[in-house]
Design a protein around this nucleic acid. Sequence first.
DNA 1: CGGTAACATTGATCGTTGTCGATGTCCACG
DNA 2: CGTGGACATCGACAACGATCAATGTTACCG
Lengths: 124, 124
Amino acid sequence: MSVTQTLPLTDISRRSTDEADACSSPLARASIAPDHADALARSLKALADPARLRIISIVSAHTDQEACVCDLTDQLTLSQPTISHHLKVLVEAGFLSRAKRGTWSYYSVVPGSLNSVVGVLADV
Amino acid sequence: MSVTQTLPLTDISRRSTDEADACSSPLARASIAPDHADALARSLKALADPARLRIISIVSAHTDQEACVCDLTDQLTLSQPTISHHLKVLVEAGFLSRAKRGTWSYYSVVPGSLNSVVGVLADV
DNA sequence: CGGTAACATTGATCGTTGTCGATGTCCACG
DNA sequence: CGTGGACATCGACAACGATCAATGTTACCG
């Protein structure tokens, strides 16, 4: 399996700048940087879950923009540890913030966090 | 922030069926429906990958809004089957469309597909 | 001080997914 | 008609992630 064939070094490995590429079209603008794509993917991964989207929606639907875990266990058909897990993911991604008062934990949407992702995604 | 104000204890003993739960706040508006969250999560899952974000960016950076696979294998440090896999995910999610001409496959961004997700995400 | 309620953490399970090598398919060309 | 190039598909594997039961932690209350 090692070296089955020598690499075709004639044309493929040659860096373009030659217009002889038949299948390619010129670039109009630069594409996003790899690390930029990595950061955006991390944010999107935190949002790409039905339970987490509903959590954000439920929290932001409250008048004072905050809800406790009991509000979520009531509406979502998920166990309490699972909801805590999703909350942790959203907090670590910067979409929610936690405020503990007494025995209750109140979660609220970080202002502008969603719009920031929306803005970045708009010009990908 | 270490306020930890004492809670209004007068109402805690009264269990639910009363609309005023101690830890809960009233709703200002409705939250998204579960199937709506499911659909949005599927779209976001297709975007939540660094390679796929870069693919969309590279394709849309071309002047005619289309690029062939060779353009992608050149810029991404991934094998050709892996790139084909990501392209398939993006096509099935509705973000890219495929046009085969000769031996080459040209991929282009479906107009409005990204903005649609952005718009839905904006009012979650 | 013991009990209970709210929530977080841990450990385990199991489906999902990103990746690559190998192979298949289709087209162009000599 | 055979050969090679461009791309898709398949099979396998490893890493990740969503979920839950069990347990831990902290605050409140009698």
